[in-house]
Simulated assay, not measured.
Amino acid sequence: MAEGPSPGPSDGKCPLEAIFDQALVEQNRLRTLKSSDAPADFLLKVAADELAERLGVIERHFDEAVEIHGYTGLVAAALQRTGKIGQMARIETDPAFAAPGDAFVSAPLEHLPLEPASVNLAVAPLSLHLTNDTPGVFVQIRRALRPDGLFLAAIPGADTLQELRDVLLQAEVEMAGGASPRVIPFADIRDIGALLQRAGFALPVTDKETYTVRYDSIFPLMKDLRAMGMANPLVARSRKPLPRSFFLRAAELYAERYSDPDGRIRATFSIVYLSGWAPHESQQKPLKPGSAKVRLADALKAKPAG
């Protein structure tokens, strides 16, 4: 998500007009998994709880489910505990993400090895924001669902890391007279909802939850981002190493603009939760134009009782 000590440019080839270096995205995720440092998976735990709660209230059993790029499988496990799922398969970028006993397939972020109409439930936790062809991935998921199958996802939204974006931009403008992208772009909730409709999902629903995490300074925040596998993967990122003075100035700006009375700083994480169904004739349909029993004009003329 943000700039830090960079692992350097990847050797992977990036598609024309790509926003993210997919090879570097995969390297970052795998490096975090193999790191001796404890992973910062608190957002994944939040998403797991939310998605499990939403699945739990649906009066349906899903015989065949798949978790799409869910890192360690934490979300898949939470969903299985709801008792709503028969079999759960997992897709990740590397076999190293598999746990013992997993039904596991390795595949890139943007290419899903799923047969058409092969699953009843697809869940994608905190990974779709890193795809260059997000509409195409939505379409792949839609095709993989059986009629009346459900798609659930959690995607970081537009307000995520707004404070960090602000101070890194200001620090670089002050010190270099210009700025390069340091924090990745995040989609607005309306754009995500439009993607659901564009991909052909029925009954699309999106809502947003905002979480505020507090840190002693900018440095543990950036350490957490690296521990999430979210070092800057932008194709347009600067390859020039940043001096320590840059981060010290960014830390000063962060403390000045976004600290609480106790001196700790705030970091915003916004997560958009979405759901959509593969179309089926049994689903509720909107009324056809002209099918209303009461004219709007007559309803507006109605007098209040009493």
Results as ranks from 00 to 15, higher is better:
residue 1 M to K: 06
residue 3 E to G: 10
residue 5 P to Y: 02
residue 9 P to R: 12
residue 11 D to M: 11
residue 20 F to K: 11
residue 29 R to I: 09
residue 29 R to P: 04
residue 32 T to E: 12
residue 34 K to T: 15
residue 35 S to D: 13
residue 38 A to S: 15
residue 43 L to W: 00
residue 43 L to N: 06
residue 45 K to F: 13
residue 46 V to P: 02
residue 49 D to W: 02
residue 50 E to L: 04
residue 52 A to N: 00
residue 57 V to T: 15
residue 62 F to R: 02
residue 71 Y to F: 07
residue 77 A to Y: 01
residue 82 T to G: 10
residue 83 G to P: 13
residue 86 G to V: 10
residue 96 A to E: 10
residue 97 F to D: 07
residue 97 F to P: 00
residue 98 A to I: 09
residue 99 A to P: 11
residue 100 P to W: 04
residue 101 G to F: 05
residue 103 A to K: 11
residue 105 V to P: 03
residue 108 P to D: 03
residue 117 A to Q: 15
residue 118 S to F: 03
residue 119 V to R: 11
residue 120 N to G: 13
residue 121 L to C: 10
residue 122 A to V: 15
residue 124 A to L: 09
residue 124 A to Y: 07
residue 129 H to C: 08
residue 133 D to P: 05
residue 134 T to F: 04
residue 136 G to L: 06
residue 144 A to R: 04
residue 144 A to S: 15
residue 146 R to I: 09
residue 148 D to H: 15
residue 148 D to P: 14
residue 151 F to D: 10
residue 152 L to Y: 06
residue 153 A to T: 13
residue 158 A to S: 14
residue 160 T to C: 08
residue 164 L to A: 12
residue 164 L to N: 05
residue 164 L to D: 00
residue 164 L to M: 11
residue 165 R to D: 12
residue 166 D to R: 13
residue 167 V to F: 01
residue 169 L to Q: 13
residue 169 L to D: 13
residue 170 Q to P: 08
residue 171 A to I: 06
residue 172 E to R: 05
residue 177 G to F: 08
residue 178 G to C: 13
residue 178 G to A: 14
residue 180 S to L: 01
residue 182 R to W: 01
residue 183 V to N: 00
residue 190 R to M: 14
residue 192 I to A: 10
residue 193 G to C: 02
residue 193 G to A: 00
residue 196 L to C: 07
residue 198 R to V: 09
residue 199 A to N: 08
residue 199 A to R: 06
residue 200 G to K: 04
residue 204 P to Q: 01
residue 204 P to V: 04
residue 206 T to M: 07
residue 207 D to Q: 14
residue 209 E to N: 06
residue 212 T to S: 09
residue 218 I to F: 01
residue 218 I to R: 01
residue 220 P to Q: 03
residue 223 K to M: 13
residue 223 K to L: 13
residue 228 M to S: 11
residue 233 P to K: 00
residue 236 A to Y: 02
residue 239 R to N: 14
residue 241 P to S: 09
residue 241 P to G: 08
residue 242 L to D: 03
residue 247 F to A: 15
residue 248 L to H: 11
residue 254 Y to N: 03
residue 256 E to P: 07
residue 262 D to S: 09
residue 265 I to G: 01
residue 266 R to Q: 15
residue 268 T to R: 03
residue 269 F to H: 07
residue 271 I to T: 08
residue 273 Y to G: 09
residue 275 S to K: 06
residue 277 W to I: 10
residue 278 A to N: 14
residue 279 P to A: 10
residue 284 Q to H: 03
residue 286 P to C: 10
residue 295 R to S: 15
